[in-house]
């Protein structure tokens, strides 16, 4: 299963449309075998992340908040969206690989970052 996560530093970005950084990772059999690939946009763009998700044949987009338009677009493209998640992306990835991540989850390691996206 291929996953795209919109991130800010080590955390899941609070807003998909305002994030500039993402990772793409493969998760198989409850683990994340390879190091995730990091992607950086020149400016925040939910549209660009959607295009990337389609082009990369991503199965799941994991994010914090996502607006209705991008959510509908991804759903229309048959990409699952797990949104409303707060916490470190590595922790979220582990939970997702083990089918234990639910939308709106606040992860135990949810950090109190001084600077968000």
């Amino acid at each position: 299963m291929k996953v795209l996560i919109a991130i800010t530093r080590d955390e899941i970005a609070p807003r998909f449309d305002l994030a500039v950084e993402a990772i793409i990772a493969e998760v198989t059999d409850g683990s994340v075998p390879d190091e995730p690939r990091h992607l950086l946009l020149s400016e925040p763009s939910g549209d660009e992340f959607c295009t990337l998700a389609v082009r990369e044949s991503v199965d799941v987009v994991l994010c914090g908040g996502i607006d209705e338009m991008h959510y509908d677009y991804l759903s229309w493209k048959k990409i699952s969206v797990v949104d409303g998640v707060i916490g470190p992306y590595a922790e979220a990835l582990e939970l997702l690989a083990n089918a234990k991540l639910k939308p709106d989850a606040i992860l135990p390691g949810a950090a109190n970052e001084e600077d968000g996206s």
């Binding site: 609070p14 305002l18 914090g64 109190n112 968000g116």
Partner: peptide
């Protein structure tokens, strides 16, 4: 939890 992650504003950061 950090306010940034709860409020989800566009005022960045």
């Amino acid at each position: 939890i950090g306010a940034d992650f709860v409020i989800r504003s566009n005022l960045r950061p």
